[in-house]
């Protein structure tokens, strides 16, 4: 780890201003990616801007049809929050399976979504639930947010403040964890909004995406067996020592089938 300047601003404006005035500034949220990166010497920022003290990034509110979660909310809070568990249990379920207990106690939703690790869990929820991402200056539709490997619609210095998740009639998330890291080899979230099905996939590609082919089939017939005939091309899918692209494509289907089975059992 190298020497850096540490800042702890108390407002979005102050944080952005620190970022803009730095030659090489990094925001620190839960630190579950950044800190290991620093320890391995893979990043050497001049300034670390800790976002933990910014009031606007905290808080959870549940209104009719919408769960709004502050970006600094830790995974464990989402997993255990009684109101989220009641109205949007799929999100608590997903959050409760991120990494391990230590990761969940520190990692934040905003950090995960801003980082857009291809194997992170939350992006499946952002896509699958059709979430809206609020930043200090605008709102971004979840569908338009993920661009590529570790690449999002965020502009340099832009900070996610909260994420709004519409509440579906029913939804389920199925994850095939990497046995080593427990990241998602693939993760599939299927949500039913009054008969309109959304399917968010993480892990399989360079970033999370909507599986429109699967959605089309499920919109016709919300039945796991309906997916047996779906041909899911693996072009552009990730391939590494844990899973080939072909195996990932297969797993997306299997996880989707299982999520549909879960939904039908609700």
């Amino acid at each position: 780890m190298y020497r850096f300047n540490y800042h702890k601003p108390s407002s979005i404006e102050e944080a952005v201003s620190l970022f803009n005035s730095s030659d090489d500034g990094f925001y620190l949220s839960g630190g579950q990616t950044l800190i290991p990166t620093l320890k391995l010497g893979l990043a050497s920022p001049v300034d670390i801007i800790d976002l933990s003290n910014i009031e606007a990034l905290h808080g959870i509110s549940v209104d009719s049809g919408l769960v709004s979660i502050g970006a600094f909310t830790r995974h464990a809070e989402v997993a255990e929050h009684p109101e989220i568990r009641r109205v949007l249990p799929v999100l608590s379920h997903l959050a409760g399976r991120i990494g391990d207990g230590q990761v969940r106690n520190l990692g934040t939703m905003g950090g995960s979504v801003a980082n857009s690790d291809p194997a992170a869990d939350y992006p499946a929820a952002v896509i699958g639930l059709g979430a809206t991402i609020h930043t200090g200056k605008r709102t971004i539709s979840g569908d338009d947010y993920f661009k590529d490997l570790f690449e999002t619609a965020l502009e340099p210095g832009e900070i996610i403040t909260r994420i709004d998740y519409p509440i579906p009639d029913r939804a389920a998330y199925r994850k095939f964890p990497n046995p080593a890291s427990r990241y998602a080899v693939v993760g599939v979230l299927v949500a039913d909004f009054a008969g309109a099905i959304r399917v968010g996939v993480t892990g399989a590609g360079p970033c999370a995406f909507r599986a429109t082919g699967i959605e089309a089939v499920l919109n016709q017939n919300l039945d796991p067996d309906a997916l047996k005939v779906v041909d899911l091309p693996d072009a552009g899918f990730n391939s590494d020592l844990h899973a080939s692209a072909e195996y990932r494509a297969h797993l997306v289907k299997v996880m989707a089938e299982r999520a549909v089975t879960d939904i039908l059992a609700l």
Binding site: P179, A180, S181, Y183, L241, H242
Partner: peptide, 28 residues
């Protein structure tokens, strides 16, 4: 079921951390 040290053709250790080298855990 889980563990394998892998070197690539250049002799680089691909499984150089717990992210890629899978140690058994209690739930395995």
């Amino acid at each position: 079921l889980l563990e394998q040290a892998i070197y690539d053709e250049f002799g680089q250790l691909v499984t150089g951390s717990y992210m890629d080298y899978c140690m058994p855990r209690a739930d395995d």
